Structure formats: C-alpha cells, structure tokens
Amino acid sequence: MPVEVGIVGAGNRGHAHADVDGADVVAVADIDQDAATTLADDYDVPVVYGEFQDMLDDAALDAVSVCVHNNLHWPVTEYAADARVHVFCEKPLAATYTDAEAMAETAEEAGVHLGVQNDRLFSPETRAARTLVDAGELGEPYYARGVYSRRRGRPYIDGYGTPGFVSKESAGGGPVIDIGTYVVGQLLNLLGNGENQSTYTDRLDESGHDIEDAGMGMAHLADEAGHELTAEEIVERSESTAIEL
C-alpha cells in the first residue's frame, strides 16, 4: 500500500513535496487557508487543515513532510513524533544545531524515522564518487572541497523568495545553512561522516539583514580527514556546484 502523507506548509516546497510518486498525499496544513486550498486543488489532496496539530490528531498519516520555515521544523517534528508519525523534513534539518539534535533524539525515543531532504546525496555524480571511494579507486580520501554558488542572487533581497529567507530567527542563517547544507552532506558522505574535531567558519554580511551573503568553513574530522565549504549567493556568474576529493 502507498504511504499516506500529510504536508505541513503549502508554499513552494510544499508543492514540490506534493508532486511525488509512490505515496498518497492525503492532507495539507497551512495557516494560510488560500495557499493550502490551492495546493490541494493542484494535487487532488482531499483534506485541508489550518493547523498542523489538527492534521496530525485527525488524519491517519504514515508520515508528514515538513515544509515550513526552518525554525518551525523542530516543533512540528516533536508533535509528529508524539503522534508516532514518521517525518521527512525539508533542508536544512533545523535552524540551529540544538534544534536538530533535539529532533533526532525525539524521533529515536518515539521510534519514528526522521529524514531530511538532500537530493544531492542521490545524484548520479555523488553515487559514482561514493562507488569509487568504496572500491578504493581513489586511495584513502583525506581532503574534500565543496562549492555552491547560486546565480539567482539572494532570496528576497534580489527579487524572489519571502522575507523569511533573510531573517535569522526564521531561517537560522543565509546560504551556509540554505544551500551549503547540500554540500556538507555530500562531503561527509564521501569522507565517511566522521566526528567533527574542529571547525573554522567565516561569513560575509553586506546585505543589511541579519544573515550572511556568503560563507566559508573548514572542518577537521576524527579520522584525520578534512573538508572545506564555500556557499554564496551571487548574480554575476552562472550557478556552480562542485565537489573535489
């Protein structure tokens, strides 16, 4: 039987999660009833709720997709875990490390699965690199570098996206947490996801908002491997992503 899923958040990411194969989207919740109704009409979702708590209490869900602002990922996950509903969360997992840690602990205690959307881990390129690493074709990796530059510029500031993107309270940060999470996931996947021993980060903030415009960082892992990250939102050049191992 298909997995029965409810969606929390009827914005851009909610629409992306509704367009899915292998699952039945049976409910959507959003405090913006017009947005929820539009998503329901577009994807034939039978039931609309104004509050995610009502959806989780009322609908017989197997899983929930969390597609709201980053700072709300934790309270939705907590409520879903208490209802014994599995959680698939938009990236990043949370707005803060402490929230992400609490989400993982809560899901484990409740016996539910907690997943985060990072489609780059399943790309042909990442899978091919992982195959080469596992086969020993590249020797023992000790350093990896990842870059993600977004050509559309900065969300909201440069004419697209909502104000939530440039609020640290709701987003948790700028491109480092927004698109850098893809690259960090790939780097850790290829280097074995070792325990972090030390980290250096630096962020550039020229937007006048309380999130960065660009960021870079380096991390040293317990197995002596290291990785470097650059994430930025720019206008001048084409979108660029790269992983070097």
Rank of each mutant, 00 (worst) to 15 (best):
V45C: 08
V47P: 06
V47F: 13
V47G: 11
V48N: 06
Y49E: 09
G50F: 04
G50E: 08
G50Q: 02
F52S: 02
F52T: 07
Q53F: 12
D54A: 11
M55R: 06
M55L: 10
D57R: 09
D58F: 01
A59E: 03
A60F: 07
A60R: 04
A63P: 05
A63T: 06
S65A: 15
S65Q: 12
V68Q: 03
H69D: 14
N70D: 12
N70W: 08
N71I: 08
L72F: 11
H73C: 04
H73N: 01
H73A: 07
H73F: 02
W74Y: 04
E78T: 14
A80C: 11
A81P: 03
V87D: 02
V87L: 10
C89S: 06
E90Y: 00
E90N: 01
A94I: 00
A94C: 02
A94R: 01
A95F: 01
T96V: 02
Y97R: 15
Y97G: 13
D99F: 05
A100R: 00
E101K: 13
E101R: 15
E101W: 13
M103K: 01
M103Y: 03
M103L: 07
A104Q: 15
A107Q: 08
A107G: 12
E108C: 11
A110D: 09
V112M: 07
H113Y: 13
H113A: 14
L114P: 05
L114F: 05
L114W: 02
G115E: 08
G115C: 08
G115K: 03
V116R: 05
Q117K: 06
Q117L: 05
N118F: 04
D119F: 00
R120L: 10
R120M: 12
L121V: 02
L121Q: 00
F122P: 08
F122Y: 11
P124S: 07
R130I: 01
R130K: 03
R130W: 01
R130G: 04
T131K: 10
L132I: 10
L132Q: 09
D134S: 09
A135R: 11
G136I: 07
E137D: 14
E137T: 14
L138D: 02
G139P: 11
E140P: 11
P141A: 06
Y143M: 14
A144L: 04
A144N: 06
R145Y: 14
R145T: 13
Y148T: 00
Y148V: 03
R151S: 15
R152E: 14
R152H: 13
G153D: 10
R154H: 13
P155G: 01
Y156E: 12
